[in-house]
């Protein structure tokens, strides 16, 4: 088991967003979380690398046991340095070029020398065919290019898990394909991923496990075929039939 979350709870003011989540992921798995907007999917993801802090719960990551209600700065940094995140709005550093965006984490997160970091960044940028964009600032790139660089920025760190937070939601429809292609390629290479998305075709074709999430709870989990073709829970069925035309 690479990551195990036990009874994670999170409240915003007086609104409970996560009502005791249990989730475990093996190395090499691609877990896709689907569900209605505002159900807490993104919050769950942000609790895994502590961009938000849970109220209570336990987490075991790489055999290290963590108390989510009481984390030290070292623990937070350690988890962040073994995970990476791809954001809905890309969040490429606006004051850094494409290649600097990628090298930044290697230099300041993994203490690599600038030279080595830039070499690695160059290589990984080349592997997705964006090397000609290395000196461009984010504002000079299309949304699709920005997000693909966002993925490279995450994977170049060689993380144990990559967290995808609705990576294609902000993209124009014609640009979604290239980003999903990069993600599928990553999955094929055995990268462990947790993906929050509304792209049902991606969930169906790439996921090793699909989690249906609603109202801050995991309602149903199983293989793509189990969840999509034979949903057991009434709410899963409702959700799937409501979005039927989308997939």
């Amino acid at each position: 088991m690479l990551l195990e979350i036990k009874n994670l709870k999170k409240k915003f003011v007086n609104n409970t967003v996560l009502k005791g989540i249990d989730l475990s992921i093996n190395a090499g798995e691609v877990v896709v979380i689907i569900g209605p907007s505002g159900s807490g999917k993104t919050t769950l993801l942000r609790n895994i690398n502590f961009l938000e802090q849970a109220d209570s719960g336990k987490m075991t990551f790489k055999n290290k046991r963590l108390n989510l209600a009481n984390l030290s700065n070292e623990e937070i940094l350690w988890v962040r340095r073994h995970t990476a995140m791809v954001f809905q709005n890309y969040n490429l550093f606006k004051n850094k070029t494409a290649i600097e965006n990628i090298s930044e984490g290697l230099i300041f997160g993994q203490n690599k020398s600038k030279k080595v970091a830039l070499q690695l960044a160059k290589k990984s940028l080349d592997s997705v065919g964006l090397l000609d964009k290395q000196d461009f600032y984010p504002a000079q790139l299309s949304g699709g290019q920005q997000q693909r660089i966002g993925i490279v920025r995450a994977t170049v760190l060689n993380p144990d898990i990559v967290l995808f937070d609705e990576p294609t939601s902000a993209l124009d429809p014609e640009l979604v394909g290239t980003v999903l292609y990069d993600m599928k390629h990553l999955a094929d290479q055995g990268q462990t991923m947790i993906v929050v998305t509304h792209q049902m075709s991606f969930a169906r074709n790439v996921a090793s496990r699909v989690v249906f999430f609603a109202d801050g709870e995991i309602i149903e989990t199983g293989t793509p075929s189990e969840v999509f073709d034979h949903p057991k829970n009434k709410r899963t069925k409702q959700f799937l039939s409501a979005i039927a035309e989308d997939y």
């Binding site: 990476a84 969040n91 606006k94 984490g105 995450a154």
Partner: peptide
């Protein structure tokens, strides 16, 4: 943009960097 700070943390930078 708050997302810029979050992105920096997500690639493993500490608060100072």
């Amino acid at each position: 943009d708050k997302g810029q700070y979050e992105a920096a943390l997500s690639v493993g930078m500490d608060v100072k960097h």
